[in-house]
Design a protein around this nucleic acid. Structure first.
Lengths: 333, 333
DNA sequence: ACGGATTGGTTAATCGTTTAATCACTCTCC
DNA sequence: GGAGAGTGATTAAACGATTAACCAATCCGT
């Protein structure tokens, strides 16, 4: 009982006694067709519920009006949010989004890219999986790589380094001097930027943070929270929210109060950040802006690569260190 | 400097002095081609980096090897997890996934559906947005609707009703008699099933829960936690994890300890559930199983609709009520 | 050695749309 | 009234892969 599949352009043409070309022209407002005819054709097309065959158009024009979006792992909380932003930006331009998940695997990433190319996407938006890099010249369509500002060929990114600086400045202003830095994966360019920004400012303030590398997971955060000697630090700055939240849980288990005994910061402003208790001071990216720019890049509207400002979101997890003359206090600006 | 775009089938044919048809046959192992020729053709195709033009193939065969996935809101945490499961199931079948987000809007949902049809998807997997329903006969491709078991035309679903029963049984076994039920949106079929399952069992145990409807959001949970008289209840069962977590935060603010003063349960086992403190007793769906069945349905491998079992995950947020002779205790089975 | 099957291929049509090239008119202007 | 300029359409050739129909050999059994 499946409905009769949508009528072709020739059906409309036949019904009106004109040629297929005229219908095509009328529908798209090109060529030379009398206004009266255009109206008739449009009306009939609408009446028949005509929708152009995408494959045929793609074959003829070489454009599929589809872009590919490749994320490292859509299971991780930040990427769906980004996918949503890309999807919105794409729809505004009449583009559909083919989604791919590289599952943190470089080979899978390559496979997905060629697969999407084969499927005729007009462009790609890629968030490279850790430790990998995309060579745009090896891909026959425009590619917007979204990674760190320092990555060669990067097209759009948040200013992770400045975000790192903001976190460090915030902690320094609060009076912290002994800080633990959960630095995330060593081979992540984004993490490197974040950590780089923090270290830069800490050092310029005469502070040498203690760096710990790990995966960017909740569990890794928990492990550090359990293993480390927490009394050595008055603040812990994590390169990812997940690390921070994991650390918080373990710290609380050990009777370390946040922010009273130790301040804690994250990075990304995942949904968790507002929910956990105490709510997390963190950095928020403007994902929609990044996505919009990526789309306008692959659409050829600009050829500039851009770095987007980032926001410090101060919540409850940061305060001045225990024995510190209050300067700002708990809900510091 | 974009690479020369991939060669066509005729290019291979010309280079080997055979016809295009033979190349097509050789590449796909159909028709009659000598083994030697097949090898030659395959070799040359590989050497030229040939990839079949997807649009052309789709036009000719009417199959795009692409499915559309439509979710209500990819920003909400459960759907990305599901999208990942669908994507995996699709890849196993060599299908790509076109993703759409109906943003909780029925009109947008319809628009996305026709849009995807127009793009030639072979099938659709749809999680209907609340209060809407999909009429498969109005869609010219196979559709797997994933909703509640009770929905007409539903193809794959978790057994939300049984999940509700499991929660209720768990709370009853612990000895709770005064229970608050955060029932989620009234027009959500899934929520209705969950709540229905709980009520069914509570009532059969002589318990009449207090129902409160709202959005399935963290904020709504918080609002209830602030507004209600918590002393009236020994347990709160929420139809969604987000509601439960929101409620927990507000309850704690008011000095209500979970699970000592009140037990709390969620639904969905979002990542949060293990992270919040106390960790949340909740229900977990087997998303991969649901996704796999949806795919095998639209692939025509089965025409049965299936309901999948669901798991109770007992964590720290449930215990026997305050003045109750211990039966199970805090970490009850 | 001859009719029929089998093998290895070719031809040509087709999917639905776009687009350059062309055509048949009707105006207009001197 | 005839040359050009518009106007409103038509024709036909793509786009690249698939596939039914056809054809030319070769093989086999009797």
């Amino acid at each position: 009982m499946k409905e009769t599949r949508s009528s072709s352009i020739r059906e409309i043409a036949a019904g009106l006694g004109v040629s297929a070309a005229t219908v095509s022209n009328a529908l798209r407002g090109k060529g030379r067709v009398s206004p009266a005819m255009v109206r008739q054709i449009r009306a009939r097309a609408h009446e028949l519920g005509y929708v152009p065959d995408h494959a045929a158009r793609a074959l003829r024009t070489g454009k599929s009006n589809t872009i590919g979006l490749l994320v490292p792992n859509i299971g991780q909380p930040l990427f769906p949010a980004f996918a949503q932003a890309v999807e919105r930006a794409a729809r505004q331009r009449g583009l559909a989004v083919l989604i791919g998940d590289s599952r943190g695997d470089a080979r899978q990433q390559d496979f997905e890219i060629t697969n999407m190319i084969a499927r005729g996407v007009d462009a790609l938006v890629v968030i490279p999986t850790r430790g990998t890099t995309i060579a745009p010249q090896s891909v026959p369509v425009p590619v917007a790589v979204i990674d760190s500002a320092a990555t060669a060929g990067n097209v759009a990114a948040s200013d992770h380094r400045e975000g790192g600086r903001m976190i460090a400045r915030h902690l320094i202003d609060l009076g912290h001097e002994r800080v633990l830095l959960l630095a995330g994966p060593e081979n992540s360019l984004v993490a490197r930027e974040r950590v780089g920004g923090m270290c830069e400012l800490f050092r310029s303030a005469g502070i040498e943070p203690v760096l710990k590398h790990s995966d960017a997971t909740f569990e890794a955060g928990t492990a550090f929270g359990r293993a480390l000697d927490l009394h050595r630090f008055t603040a812990c700055a994590a390169a990812y929210d997940a690390l921070a939240v994991g650390f918080a849980v373990a710290a609380r288990e050990r009777g370390c109060a946040i922010p009273e005994d130790m301040s804690l910061t994250g990075f990304d402003d995942l949904m968790w950040a507002q929910i956990v208790s105490p709510s997390l001071t963190t950095i928020r990216q403007d994902l929609q802006a990044v996505a919009d720019h990526a789309l306008s890049f692959v659409a050829g509207e600009t050829d500039a690569s851009r770095i987007f400002p980032i926001d410090l979101v101060v919540r409850e997890s940061t305060a001045s260190p225990p024995a510190f003359p209050r300067k700002g206090g708990r809900h510091a600006e």
